[in-house]
Design a protein around this nucleic acid. Structure first.
Length: 290
DNA sequence: AAGATCGCCTGCAGGC
DNA sequence: TGCCTGCAGGCGATCT
């Protein structure tokens, strides 16, 4: 499941292949893949043809390719999305959704997505807080690997919230790029339970969980992104493998790497939370004085 | 109005 | 064997 490190791996890979190339033809093979492009598939196609790709950018789990029209192709990989660079002679993938062919007749760009949670759109840009981003992601916060990310601002915003810590880490409008896997890993490293109330979290503890998130995602990025099944494949067609270094996620009943206590899995937000019941103590219900 | 929940979507593992 | 259920889970829409 692509989170920030995996998306960054794709972005970096794409940058090598699509820069300064002119789009010559587009085919949309599944309408759901462009459902966020409100004017429809025809409009999506016409906004791309004849346009040149200027760069490859990313914020959190979103990546986009600015065009010489001033708009950008925005992509989200969802659960199972892949952006593949393939020779035009390569047979169509089973879940091929969108295909971009270039005027130079070189390798084409394919969006492949089994579960169709991901998608593409072409959008104008908007300035938000000193950055220029596609309009539909104006509400997405900077991610912690962004040079303009402000830790103190995150800590303040986190402690103003009245929710559980993991919910906040997954809130892309508070901090972006963190998904279920790296949230569990960061909480394990910081020895914090997922249900800790954000409003009672000491600033030092908030800084620790942020540092942990940065650490686990930086390490994953260095390793080329995490993958658990064959669905996520990076732009070169090779799966990233970082899962062997995961300490909590997916390790139900396996010993905690610190204390040996079996890792526990609990339902959380229609998914799972993995944590060490010894290192990550459930918060008490007691109301603390301000 | 912020916070919590729902529905989307496919493939596969596991139970009977 | 094949049907059924649960699970994977990000995110916009919709509730409270």
């Amino acid at each position: 499941m692509p989170e920030l490190p995996e998306v960054e791996t794709v972005r970096a890979g794409l940058a090598r292949f699509v820069l300064d190339r002119e789009v010559a033809a587009v085919s949309v093979d599944h309408p759901r893949a462009v459902r966020r492009h409100v004017p429809g598939a025809g409009d999506f196609t016409s906004r791309l043809i004849g346009r040149r790709i200027l760069s490859a950018q990313r914020r959190g789990k979103y990546l986009w390719l600015p065009l010489d029209s001033g708009e950008a192709v925005l992509a989200h990989l969802g659960m199972s999305g892949q952006l593949l660079v393939q020779p035009s002679t390569a047979p169509a993938e089973k879940h091929l959704r969108v295909r971009l062919q270039f005027a130079d007749s070189g390798p084409e760009l394919r969006f492949v997505d089994q579960r169709t949670f991901g998608g593409l759109s072409v959008e104008p840009m908007v300035e938000v807080d000193g950055d220029v981003v596609p309009v539909s992601i104006a509400h997405i916060a900077r991610d912690p690997l962004d040079p303009r990310f402000e830790p103190a601002r995150f800590v303040t915003a986190l402690r103003r919230k009245h929710t559980e810590l993991k919910r906040a880490l997954l809130d892309q409008s508070l901090i972006s790029g963190i998904g279920n896997i790296y949230a569990d890993e960061a909480l394990w490293v910081a020895r914090l339970h997922y249900a800790r109330p954000t409003e009672k979290l000491a600033p030092a503890r908030a800084r620790e969980v942020l540092a942990a998130a940065i650490d686990v995602m930086t390490a994953a990025l260095a390793a080329g992104g995490t993958s658990f099944d064959s669905l996520y494949v990076n732009v070169n067609g090779a799966s990233g493998y970082f899962d062997r270094s995961l300490q909590a996620y997916g390790r139900e009943d396996k010993p905690c790497g610190r204390c040996g206590t079996p890792i526990r899995r609990e339902p959380f937000m229609n998914r799972s939370s993995y944590f060490c019941p010894h290192c990550q103590r459930r918060p008490s219900r007691a109301v603390l004085p301000l």
